[in-house]
């Protein structure tokens, strides 16, 4: 974390401090709508960062991360709705179950040598499998969805994640900040270097004594556990969960857009990606609504085009290019 700071030059440090202060003070001036957009951005920073650890650093392309969001959300919401167990406690089994799924998928893939495209398809298959399964789990609402009841009387119970927009904004801020710091720390750790070695060349990594299976397992475990926490946030923020929505592949795609556009395998890529894409999406909805077009479709088309253009022109993402142009990082000498 200290080295994250040290690697930035004076200008980079100033930009970072100003940005953090602005985010902390934003609720003073922001409207409720703006605050909800910012909350959404921070949520995508968080889950994007979780995915970035696995793909950007360890090089394992999961296209089924919605699985962990959904599992985390459903477990915590189910415990709350049926047993009155609050999310601060519920997050533990939520994370445990998502991580167990992650561990199982990872074990299957890495033990049996399912790599590259096949690995991606395996992750999709598990997410889809689970989605259809949840359509049929009665106690969790099935296809009709699971709702967390809105209770006026409990509104102040922040310890049960029953808060207003402001509460969720700061919660998202803490989550996103923690994810960035964790990534920065991991990226410079021994494990982070092992991941990057595996991402670059698995055979060479093995020849340097790296236990590839273990390192990859750690990547799925950390990533799925982190993502599940995001799922708990999602469930209590939106108060509803539908299998067709939370587990769907487009959700997995939505979650990976930020890191890809921002820059895979960088600490700030997912941050920049979320701050660029989410507002653009909102703007587009506003514009198309005015024009009377079918807004969801238009927004998605726009994202599809952004994805194609970015991967065509700047496959490394916006952040590496931006930070160089603006001179925000120190060239190590």
């Amino acid at each position: 974390m200290i080295s994250l700071w040290r690697d930035m030059n004076r200008r980079g440090q100033v930009v970072l401090v100003v940005a953090v202060l602005a985010m902390l003070l934003a609720p003073v001036v922001a409207t409720r709508y703006l605050l909800s957009v910012l909350t959404l951005i921070l949520y995508f920073v968080y889950v994007g960062q979780a995915w970035n650890l696995m793909m950007g650093y360890a090089g394992q392309l999961s296209l089924g991360h919605a699985l962990y969001v959904g599992l985390g959300g459903y477990v915590a919401a189910g415990l709350w709705v049926h047993f009155g167990i609050g999310p601060w406690l519920g997050v533990i089994p939520a994370v445990a179950i998502a991580a167990a799924f992650g561990a199982f998928i990872g074990w299957l893939a890495f033990r049996f040598g399912i790599e590259g495209v096949y690995f991606s398809l395996l992750t999709i298959a598990f997410a889809e499998f689970t989605r259809i399964g949840f359509d049929h789990i009665g106690p969790l609402g099935g296809a009709g969805g699971l709702f967390i009841p809105y209770q006026e009387s409990r509104l102040g119970e922040w310890w049960n994640l029953r808060g207003g927009q402001l509460f969720f904004y700061y919660l998202a801020f803490v989550l996103a900040g923690a994810a960035v710091l964790l990534t920065a720390w991991l990226a410079r750790s021994r494990l982070g270097h092992q991941w990057m070695a595996i991402r670059e060349d698995e055979t060479a990594a093995r020849a340097l004594g790296i236990d590839v299976f273990r390192a990859k397992m750690k990547a799925v475990l950390i990533s799925s556990a982190m993502t599940a926490v995001g799922g708990v946030f999602y469930a209590f923020y939106y108060n509803n969960l539908f299998p067709a929505q939370v587990f769907e592949m487009s959700r997995s795609i939505e979650l990976i857009l930020g890191p890809i556009v921002g820059g895979l395998g960088t600490v700030f890529g997912p941050v920049i990606g979320a701050f660029v894409l989410t507002p653009l999406g909102e703007l587009l909805i506003a514009v198309t609504d005015k024009a009377g077009l079918n807004a969801p479709g238009a927004k998605a088309i726009f994202f599809g085009l952004v994805l194609m253009i970015i991967i065509y022109l700047v496959p490394g993402g916006v952040w590496p290019w931006l930070s160089r142009r603006l001179g925000l990082v120190r060239r190590r000498s």
């Binding site: 795609i253 077009l293 969801p296 238009a298 998605a300 085009l305 194609m308 496959p315």
Partner: peptide, 30 residues
Amino acid sequence: LINAFVGRPDYQQFILLVGVAIVLVNGLLI
């Protein structure tokens, strides 16, 4: 389009086509 991606890492082609897929589906939706 795709020829430009020959020899690039797998995941980049993959993402390009995910982009194509999103555009197609939502075009139909509209």
